[in-house]
Design a binder for these strands. Structure first.
Lengths: 94, 94
DNA sequence: CCTCAATTTCGAAACATATCTAAATAGATA
DNA sequence: TATCTATTTAGATATGTTTCGAAATTGAGG
């Protein structure tokens, strides 16, 4: 927790791709990994652990699988920080 | 330019502090540096160069000084990315 | 044109991150 | 319980980042 942790998590392109994939719904670690033919499963697991530590995603175990899904609430904080610097008209919307 | 560059620039705590300082108005490199007693002027200059490369700030030379100020437009892109993951009601506001 | 002050650039050290392969774990099911 | 599959953890390496002190640059003003 903490803005730095969140921002660092989100500043990596592979991790942003993971987050974008999860926009469409939850996916298992393996399903996520299969979208990255150039990265090992271990590397994906590492990225997932960082996203999880930042609470940007949540994990749910089912059978043999570990499913990951977005945890929208943390993105709100991110939005809050960013919107200081924009029109400011967004503030009312949070 | 590019979201990665922007996000990486913004993911460093010292750089976020610089951006927050600039919310109140433009400051010279030295004025910025004086807010960081624990960092050298060279280090601040390095951070400013990263923020500038990401176009989050703009520089203006006046006399002996180099003044820095926020460049709000790049923050909009950041907001756009983040708001995908939140309520989505913000989209209309950009 | 010389010097001063503000700032940046350079080169090096310390630290952090992303990635891999191989090994470990955890759970399902034969 | 033995084994298979999904996933994580460990250890190693390569690359990238932050920082510093010292030197270079730039512009102002005597």
């Amino acid at each position: 927790m903490g803005l730095s942790e969140t921002m660092k998590a989100v500043s990596d392109p592979q991790r942003r791709t993971i987050l974008t994939l999860l926009l469409k719904g939850r996916l298992s670690a393996g399903e996520i990994a299969s979208h990255f033919p150039n990265l090992s499963a271990a590397t994906i697991s590492y990225h997932l652990s960082i996203l999880k530590k930042a609470a940007l995603i949540r994990e749910e175990r089912y059978k043999n699988y570990i499913y990951y899904e977005l945890n929208a609430s943390v993105f709100e904080q991110l939005l809050l920080w960013v919107s200081q610097f924009t029109g400011e008209s967004n503030e009312a919307n949070l």
